[in-house]
Amino acid sequence: MPLTAEEVRHIARLARLGVTDAEVARLREQLSTILEHFEVLNAIDTEGVPPTTQSFDLANIERDDVSRPSATHADVLANAPRTEGSYIRVRRVLE
């Protein structure tokens, strides 16, 4: 069963992507195909198998709490579309 147009728009909104109606129609098909591939995995019996969250058998990769110099101010602001003083200026955020 293909995703609904509303589901596609919701996913796009969460990813902050603008989509046209034509794209929604195409993405419904494409995303549904991807989901169907995963349905294949769902057929496997995983009863009693703990979920895998890591593919390496590692744990406790930690660092000491030591601070080191940060990037320069110029580097930090280099990619900002707009700045004001030491700040990055962004569009108004409504809470």
């Binding site: 709490d65 601070s67 080191r68 940060s70 101010h73 030491s86 700040y87």
Partner: peptide, 23 residues
């Protein structure tokens, strides 16, 4: 802490120049 959660930037951000503890 001295440093941030996942990087070595200083976590003493209070009263610091904006965007000066960033990597």
């Amino acid at each position: 802490t001295q440093s941030k959660m996942f990087c070595g930037c200083s976590s003493a951000y209070f009263d610091a120049e904006p965007n000066s503890h960033v990597c």
